[in-house]
Design a protein around this nucleic acid. Sequence first.
DNA 1: AGCTGTGAACATATTCACAGCC
DNA 2: GGCTGTGAATATGTTCACAGCT
Lengths: 198, 198
Amino acid sequence: MARLPLYLQCLEALGESTPTVSSGRLAGIANVNSAQVRKDLSYLGSNGVRGVGYDRSTLIDMIRRELGLTEGWPIVIVGAGNLGSALANYGGFLAAGFSLVGVYDIDESKLGPTVDGVTVQSLAALEGDVKANGVAMGVVTTPAAAAQETVDRLIAAGVRSILNFAPCVVQAPKGVDVRNVDLATELQILSYYRTQHR
Amino acid sequence: MARLPLYLQCLEALGESTPTVSSGRLAGIANVNSAQVRKDLSYLGSNGVRGVGYDRSTLIDMIRRELGLTEGWPIVIVGAGNLGSALANYGGFLAAGFSLVGVYDIDESKLGPTVDGVTVQSLAALEGDVKANGVAMGVVTTPAAAAQETVDRLIAAGVRSILNFAPCVVQAPKGVDVRNVDLATELQILSYYRTQHR
DNA sequence: AGCTGTGAACATATTCACAGCC
DNA sequence: GGCTGTGAATATGTTCACAGCT
């Protein structure tokens, strides 16, 4: 369910002062249909109260559990350029329940602590850290040319889920989940809507 | 067609040395079904050659035209943090045919040229630049707390398409296309697959 | 009265399978 | 033989509409 993170975000944004939410309210914030919200939520075991709505904090817990955010997956970020730094310092990853094991870069001049307290380590330390910490997920923010090689190293070290932000499609063997997110793609989709939709 | 940017990326990665591509080949690289590739491409007017495949550069041109990438849309980036900087220096935006009008930040200490030759300007210049250049699209890379306000300013200045990278859902009136991309969401989706899929 | 949960209807997307062309 | 283009079949996703609970 690709909409669960969206609901989670909306519920967290509502804040403590909103103890219960109706499907209609949540739908309004998330810009989706209210029947869809109910269907989605009923899929995690219905626990809304008819006539009232859903208990916000219970719902947050359920979604977090469903998404596996209660597991505290250890992650690594490979590539300490602007994007890697943005993600490393991005509270959202930590708030969402991931634990950042390390940030790695091949460029030795980037090593050491960054302004925000994250330490960039040598790429040579990657495999050891992955194995020692049982790292589950890798985030790739290298240039496109280095992405496939990086992915191969991560997989060889035991990582089974990869989020690739490099602007290229990387291949992985079966059993490894790869999610390619190209930031330019997102802009191109907007451009398409702009061009066709009107 | 959300897959067109993906095909475009794959086709460009193939390089000049591959003049023609079959649907099966492209499908393999893009990790999709070959019938789907053919359906998608036939939607832009069939011009594959039976027994041979598609002409790579013709196909690139057609997809670029379909996506509106030949229009050279002027864009602005608001928020010169790590993510904004990453996008500003990210060749992909320019290569994809967008023209970067400016990068803006409310923090006066960030103003001036960055290492990569992009100049960060005062937020006060935003409206004027948008109007003067007929800016079509805005990319928001501010903190979540400033995102809605930024979006409102962009819309008021005439921007009709917005790509929001701040970790919050922003609202916009009808007629304005907003695409919310939360980088933590992408990681959460991976976490979901990891947790449920096995 | 207000809201959930859900079957049924509808809409969209994907895949199959094969005729037709090079 | 290899590949496209596409109707038909299938699968998935969305919305409606309403019974049923509080």
